[in-house]
Design a protein around this nucleic acid. Structure first.
Lengths: 153, 153
DNA sequence: TTTAATCAGTTTAGCACTAAACTGATTAAA
DNA sequence: TTTAATCAGTTTAGTGCTAAACTGATTAAA
């Protein structure tokens, strides 16, 4: 609590800079990823869906939404698109819909995932190993702190 | 060049983790910001437009697009919305359109910007000053590296 | 001077996402 | 047993974004 008031003007500016850098890096990275994925006619969000389904199948739409931190409505819409591309299939089971990759989906998964992961990882090769570890640690710390403090409100 | 091939399997996994954390932090942060801004009926991207115009006015749509790293088409659309809200006005000057805040826009700018900046900055108060500096340094380094290497392709 | 290049902004089609209201089925409480 | 709560997924309206094609005006080259 005190921290908020202790935060000096100078520190506020510093944090603001961090936020701008983070947002810019994220956007630049998404753009590059989309370019890289376009050779398989995929977008980054479709890729994310593919990774989650391929890794955790069979799973429900609800579970998928939770893993990706998006709404159920979003899942409904994007899965329909993947279904049209014949990459994912849905089976009504009990009262939920169970998602699985199709044969075509599995093949794409096997080909794209390793390459795209290599690509995404290469974004951080400008740092040495120590720096990479430190960056990960700091990001984790920020996230943990924010999760804790937002619960109590 | 060599770096790419030197990159060990282990390091790739580490970098992938960084990417996931970064994306998650970004999304969580955007969501919180949107919530915080909803009391003024603004979204984060409208806020960003307001900040840029308020800080650099008068400026053209082209210049605004460059500052925000978005397309001209996006600017056209979002400025129309801000115009409808009577926060921004456009004047055709020579062959460009010059953007300025309206009186209403100036008032909102004066009220919201300091509060929202304080809020955004508070996201990183889980780190001490040294850690904040280090995080900024690392983000910069990643960005610089990526800018350099993407030019040559 | 006609012709072509350039340049600011607009339009269109489509993907991604949310909040909020809504279905339809299951389960629990009265 | 009727009534209400819950729960998975869907729909709708609206914002935000891109790529790519397009206007209309200015400027340069032939």
């Amino acid at each position: 609590m005190l921290k908020i008031f202790n935060q000096s003007k100078h520190q506020e500016k510093l944090n603001l800079l961090i936020w701008f850098r983070l947002a810019r890096l994220y956007h630049a990275s998404i753009r590059l990823s989309n370019q890289h994925l376009s050779q398989w006619n995929l977008t980054t969000s479709q890729f994310d869906l593919l990774v989650q389904i391929g890794t955790h199948q069979p799973l429900s739409q609800q579970e998928l939404a939770e893993k990706l931190f998006v709404t159920k409505g979003n899942i409904t819409q994007s899965i329909v698109r993947l279904e049209k591309l014949e990459l994912v299939k849905r089976d009504q089971e009990w009262r939920t819909k169970i998602l699985r990759l199709t044969k075509k989906g599995e093949e794409l998964f096997g080909e794209v995932v390793p390459k795209q992961e290599l690509f995404q990882a290469s974004q951080f090769e400008g740092l040495n190993k120590e720096e990479q570890k430190e960056l990960l640690r700091l990001l984790k710390k920020v996230e943990v702190h924010n999760t804790k403090t937002s619960i109590k409100e």
